[in-house]
Design a protein around this nucleic acid. Structure first.
Lengths: 336, 336
DNA sequence: CTGAAAGCGCTAACAG
DNA sequence: CTGTTAGCGCTTTCAG
């Protein structure tokens, strides 16, 4: 049906191995022969079958990317960075949405393993059981994690200065004169979020001027931010500033605050985390801690690619990279 | 290195073909034998090599998805729908970002073809040359397009009622008493956008009450919407309502209008198109034409999957599905 | 019901 | 520099 290496060989009067060599640019082929073969391949519109190639070489030139949900703008940005890096290296990536469901995640892992991907990038394995994590580690292929989970040092990982970001937010709000603040977080177990909170608390505590922040937990979503704010406003109207664990929570917060008749930043200051594209567009434009989302994906994929190449050699110690964050001042904060 | 079908065969004292049959649930295997084999496979933690399987069967159980940019929330929604449908069918999808660059897109197509994907979903081929389109059509694998381009009927496609959406927007604004309106569009060649515009124009013309809408073209982005609005406001302040070709353009529009001191909806009404998640969150919440993004991806993938199965049988006439849109009324429009 | 054997299309020694 | 020859791991006739 499709034209194979055999057809090219027959048509150009050489052996298939010569065709293979010519096409893969391996050394040791007469220039003329090579050119003739290439011409024939082109004329026949030959397309090498990478599946066969993969079977023979044991390399698929395919990487897996498991995120919780690609619709989350944070992940679509990360995915784009990862995909670009893969494209650059001539590989492609299969996209998996785990919804943070451990079972689903493991099924994806199995599927990727069976497809013999060269490596995989995975969002978070915090929800996996110890046994599942070990199973993953035992798979033998390179894996890099997109957020270092608490205890697992067995995998390479990339993450950002969550703690430092919290400190940044705290100090900024402190400078503006705020003394009674709150931290609106996601689920309690979320590692990155709690780091952000700890940094924030540390900054306030260290200043010696502010009260301990009120901490609320809910879903890490618009709805969650909205709910937490409702709750916050009903229990403590003395608060003048709040730090949201991510931008989307901040959006919910802003909405709830506005509905309650509060003006931002006059009545309430808010700082987010992530710096999603929408944050600059929103009204008021959100002051937030920017993390390099695209860069995270790109760097993660590059780490992964490097490992897939070093394969075998020096089982390479897991590597951990932490990228910087920065405070982006816009218009959602005012003086206390 | 990895455990293969041979190991399972040896370990369970049968031939590899029996193992294959047992594991694939083909009929004609003694129940006991099958169970024993399965047990052994499980004990050995055997993972079938799908690459080898693919080579033998000619099926990869992998589909390609080419979008312009996964960061575009419209596409991440579509991608999720597509991925869910694929997952449901036991397939996985490789993600490609074309940036609408014809060359890049063709390279992705080649790559997918070489990987022997069972089919592909592609965003738009409007930018491809006639020759490239033919090349695509000749590839022999099922392809479904995510927006029917003007002239190409050779491929299956899925799209939405763009024209009808324009009519909906026009009629709604008309009802509110608007008579001088504008349409903020993207690049002139964008097929879906011009359909939206045509529907809008038609509605106004048919009413016999409104002036012909002013039409502006620019980039289909926040920046584009912002620019067009600046231009609009500088040349015609009599306009009371505007229809944006998509929500993101509407965001830019709102921002520019607010900066110019206009209140929405009191001074200017705006209707968008898409109904992105952010549109409900924005201030003011955007009235817009909703198109079923997730559903588009899901349905497109289902069409594709159906075609990959019917393979060979009745070269199946290209199929075209058009999904409905609906007006979502929120708070960005007022009476003229 | 099960085994033997012939590939799927390509790569990679190994000869020549 | 090029041809021969084994496979890669699995499916699939074809016999038995």
């Amino acid at each position: 049906m499709a034209v194979t290496i055999k057809d090219v060989a027959r048509e150009s009067g050489v052996n298939i191995s010569t065709v293979s060599r010519s096409l893969n640019g391996s050394y040791g082929v007469n220039k003329e022969t090579r050119e003739r073969v290439i011409a024939v391949a082109h004329r026949l519109n030959y397309r090498p079958n990478r599946v066969a190639r993969g079977l023979a070489t044991g390399q698929s030139n395919t990487l897996g990317l498991i995120v919780s949900d690609i619709r989350n703008p944070y992940f679509s940005e990360v995915a784009r960075g990862a995909e670009d890096a893969a494209w650059h290296a001539g590989c492609d990536v299969v996209l998996c949405n785990s919804d943070l469901d451990p079972a689903k995640q493991m099924r994806y892992v199995s599927s990727l393993l069976e497809k013999r991907v060269d490596g995989m990038l995975v969002n978070s394995i915090a929800d996996l059981s110890k046994r599942q994590q070990e199973q993953l580690a035992a798979s033998g292929i390179p894996i890099v994690l997109l957020n270092r989970p608490a205890g697992v040092k067995a995998f390479s990982s990339i993450s950002v200065e969550n703690y430092e970001g919290g400190v940044l937010a705290g100090n900024y709000l402190l400078e503006l004169g705020h003394r009674k603040m709150a931290f609106l977080s996601g689920p309690k177990r979320h590692g990155s979020f709690s780091e952000r909170g700890r940094g924030f608390e540390f900054a306030l505590a260290q200043s010696g001027k502010a009260a301990e922040p009120l901490i609320l937990n809910d879903d890490q979503s618009f709805a969650g931010g909205y709910q937490m704010t409702k709750q916050l406003l009903s229990q403590d109207r003395a608060i003048t500033a709040v730090f949201a664990a991510n931008d989307v929570i901040a959006y919910g917060l802003i909405r709830a605050a506005m509905e309650a008749g509060l003006r931002i930043p006059q009545d309430l200051s808010v700082v987010g985390f992530d710096d999603l594209e929408m944050s600059a567009i929103l009204h008021p434009p959100l002051t937030t801690i920017r993390q390099p989302k695209y860069e995270i994906g790109r760097a993660a994929m590059e780490m992964l690619l490097a490992r897939t190449k070093a394969r075998g050699r020096s089982a390479a110690e897991p590597e951990h990279r932490i990228l910087g964050v920065q405070l982006v001042i816009r218009e959602s904060c005012g003086r206390a």
